[in-house]
Lab assay of single mutants.
Amino acid sequence: QLNAMAHQIQEMFPQVPYHLVLQDLQLTRSVEITTDNILEGRIQVP
Score class of each variant (00 low, 15 high):
17 P>F: 05
7 H>R: 14
13 F>E: 00
43 I>M: 08
32 E>G: 08
31 V>W: 11
36 D>T: 15
9 I>C: 02
1 Q>D: 15
33 I>M: 08
27 L>Y: 11
37 N>L: 02
36 D>H: 14
28 T>V: 01
18 Y>P: 05
3 N>P: 07
18 Y>I: 12
38 I>L: 07
30 S>H: 03
17 P>I: 04
35 T>P: 01
11 E>M: 15
30 S>E: 04
11 E>D: 10
16 V>M: 11
18 Y>M: 11
18 Y>R: 05
22 L>D: 02
5 M>G: 03
36 D>I: 15
1 Q>Y: 14
9 I>L: 10
42 R>N: 06
41 G>A: 05
34 T>L: 01
1 Q>C: 10
39 L>Q: 07
1 Q>R: 11
8 Q>T: 13
13 F>A: 01
30 S>M: 03
33 I>W: 08
18 Y>Q: 05
30 S>T: 04
12 M>W: 07
46 P>H: 08
40 E>F: 14
40 E>W: 10
46 P>Q: 10
13 F>I: 02
25 L>Q: 00
8 Q>A: 13
4 A>N: 09
26 Q>N: 07
4 A>W: 14
19 H>I: 10
24 D>N: 06
34 T>H: 00
18 Y>W: 13
16 V>R: 00
4 A>E: 13
12 M>K: 12
8 Q>K: 13
32 E>T: 10
27 L>R: 11
33 I>G: 08
42 R>I: 06
43 I>G: 02
29 R>Y: 10
12 M>F: 08
45 V>M: 13
41 G>D: 05
7 H>S: 12
10 Q>S: 13
10 Q>L: 11
8 Q>C: 10
22 L>Y: 10
27 L>W: 10
45 V>E: 10
46 P>D: 11
9 I>F: 03
46 P>L: 10
14 P>C: 05
8 Q>H: 09
25 L>E: 02
33 I>E: 11
39 L>G: 03
46 P>K: 08
46 P>Y: 11
10 Q>M: 15
34 T>G: 00
43 I>V: 10
16 V>C: 08
28 T>C: 04
12 M>T: 08
1 Q>E: 15
35 T>D: 01
12 M>V: 08
36 D>Q: 15
15 Q>N: 14
22 L>E: 05
30 S>A: 04
26 Q>S: 09
21 V>W: 02
41 G>C: 09
30 S>W: 01
21 V>P: 00
26 Q>E: 14
30 S>G: 02
19 H>Q: 10
27 L>M: 13
33 I>C: 07
2 L>N: 03
41 G>P: 01
23 Q>D: 06
14 P>Y: 03
31 V>C: 09
5 M>N: 05
43 I>N: 03
26 Q>K: 11
37 N>F: 03
28 T>F: 04
40 E>G: 12
25 L>R: 00
46 P>C: 08
25 L>W: 01
2 L>A: 04
28 T>S: 07
29 R>L: 15
21 V>D: 00
23 Q>E: 13
17 P>A: 07
8 Q>P: 02
32 E>I: 09
31 V>K: 09
22 L>F: 10
8 Q>E: 10
10 Q>E: 06
41 G>I: 04
32 E>M: 09
36 D>M: 15
19 H>D: 10
5 M>E: 06
20 L>S: 06
21 V>T: 02
1 Q>F: 12
34 T>K: 02
34 T>A: 00
30 S>D: 06
28 T>Q: 02
23 Q>G: 07
3 N>W: 14
45 V>G: 11
2 L>Y: 09
5 M>P: 01
31 V>Y: 08
23 Q>W: 11
30 S>I: 01
25 L>T: 00
29 R>G: 15
24 D>M: 06
32 E>W: 08
6 A>L: 09
4 A>K: 11
4 A>G: 09
41 G>L: 06
2 L>T: 05
11 E>F: 11
38 I>H: 01
36 D>V: 15
22 L>M: 10
38 I>P: 00
41 G>Y: 05
44 Q>H: 13
39 L>D: 03
9 I>A: 02
25 L>A: 00
24 D>L: 07
31 V>R: 06
25 L>F: 02
24 D>H: 03
32 E>K: 14
29 R>Q: 15
7 H>A: 15
41 G>H: 06
25 L>Y: 02
20 L>M: 10
15 Q>T: 12
27 L>F: 10
46 P>A: 12
10 Q>C: 12
44 Q>R: 12
15 Q>P: 02
3 N>M: 15
32 E>A: 11
2 L>F: 11
43 I>P: 02
29 R>K: 14
38 I>N: 00
22 L>C: 06
9 I>Y: 02
6 A>W: 06
39 L>R: 14
44 Q>V: 13
43 I>A: 02
27 L>K: 13
28 T>R: 00
25 L>H: 00
27 L>G: 07
40 E>N: 12
34 T>V: 02
7 H>L: 14
17 P>Q: 05
37 N>W: 02
35 T>E: 05
5 M>T: 04
25 L>N: 00
13 F>W: 06
19 H>W: 14
39 L>K: 13
15 Q>G: 11
45 V>S: 10
32 E>D: 09
13 F>Q: 01
8 Q>M: 13
24 D>G: 01
5 M>A: 08
8 Q>F: 13
9 I>P: 00
44 Q>F: 14
40 E>A: 15
42 R>W: 07
26 Q>Y: 14
17 P>H: 04
26 Q>W: 14
3 N>L: 15
38 I>Q: 00
41 G>V: 03
4 A>Q: 12
24 D>I: 05
10 Q>T: 13
44 Q>K: 11
27 L>C: 10
36 D>L: 12
43 I>F: 09
21 V>K: 00
4 A>Y: 13
16 V>Y: 09
41 G>F: 05
20 L>E: 04
21 V>A: 06
11 E>A: 14
16 V>T: 04
39 L>W: 06
43 I>S: 01
31 V>M: 09
21 V>S: 01
13 F>N: 03
22 L>T: 03
25 L>K: 00
35 T>M: 14
33 I>S: 08
26 Q>C: 09
46 P>N: 12
43 I>C: 03
2 L>G: 03
29 R>W: 15
11 E>G: 07
28 T>P: 02
40 E>R: 14
28 T>Y: 07
13 F>C: 03
15 Q>F: 14
10 Q>Y: 14
45 V>A: 10
12 M>H: 07
10 Q>F: 14
11 E>V: 13
34 T>W: 02
36 D>A: 14
30 S>V: 03
11 E>I: 14
41 G>W: 06
31 V>A: 08
38 I>F: 05
29 R>E: 12
32 E>C: 08
46 P>G: 12
14 P>T: 04
36 D>C: 14
29 R>C: 12
33 I>F: 07
18 Y>H: 07
15 Q>I: 07
46 P>R: 07
9 I>T: 01
1 Q>N: 15
28 T>L: 02
28 T>N: 04
21 V>G: 01
4 A>H: 12
29 R>F: 15
6 A>E: 02
43 I>H: 03
20 L>R: 05
1 Q>T: 14
39 L>Y: 06
7 H>P: 02
3 N>D: 09
1 Q>W: 15
20 L>V: 09
20 L>H: 04
5 M>S: 06
19 H>V: 08
46 P>S: 12
10 Q>W: 15
27 L>E: 13
33 I>L: 12
12 M>G: 04
3 N>S: 14
12 M>N: 08
38 I>M: 03
42 R>P: 01
26 Q>L: 14
23 Q>P: 01
12 M>R: 14
26 Q>D: 08
31 V>L: 10
8 Q>N: 07
20 L>A: 08
9 I>V: 10
8 Q>D: 09
3 N>A: 15
39 L>P: 00
10 Q>D: 02
5 M>L: 12
35 T>L: 13
43 I>D: 01
2 L>Q: 04
6 A>R: 02
41 G>K: 06
23 Q>A: 15
41 G>M: 06
41 G>N: 08
8 Q>V: 12
8 Q>W: 09
36 D>K: 15
21 V>L: 11
34 T>F: 00
39 L>C: 08
3 N>V: 15
26 Q>G: 08
20 L>Y: 07
33 I>K: 14
22 L>W: 10
20 L>W: 08
17 P>T: 04
24 D>Q: 03
11 E>R: 14
23 Q>Y: 07
14 P>G: 04
1 Q>M: 15
9 I>H: 01
8 Q>G: 07
31 V>H: 06
1 Q>G: 12
31 V>D: 05
9 I>G: 00
36 D>N: 15
36 D>P: 01
40 E>Q: 14
15 Q>K: 10
6 A>T: 05
8 Q>I: 13
27 L>T: 12
42 R>Y: 07
4 A>M: 12
43 I>T: 04
22 L>I: 11
11 E>N: 07
43 I>W: 06
31 V>T: 06
33 I>Y: 07
17 P>Y: 04
20 L>G: 02
41 G>R: 05
35 T>N: 04
5 M>V: 07
37 N>H: 08
38 I>K: 01
20 L>D: 04
2 L>P: 03
16 V>H: 04
44 Q>M: 11
34 T>E: 00
22 L>K: 04
18 Y>C: 07
44 Q>P: 13
4 A>S: 09
20 L>T: 05
3 N>I: 15
23 Q>R: 08
22 L>N: 02
23 Q>L: 12
14 P>N: 05
21 V>Y: 03
24 D>Y: 04
30 S>N: 08
29 R>M: 15
11 E>Y: 10
3 N>Q: 14
35 T>C: 13
22 L>G: 00
35 T>R: 14
28 T>A: 01
39 L>S: 07
17 P>G: 03
17 P>N: 06
13 F>L: 03
24 D>P: 01
5 M>I: 09
2 L>V: 08
6 A>G: 05
15 Q>A: 10
20 L>K: 05
42 R>Q: 05
11 E>T: 12
18 Y>A: 06
11 E>W: 07
27 L>H: 10
23 Q>T: 08
23 Q>N: 09
17 P>S: 06
37 N>V: 00
9 I>Q: 00
28 T>H: 06
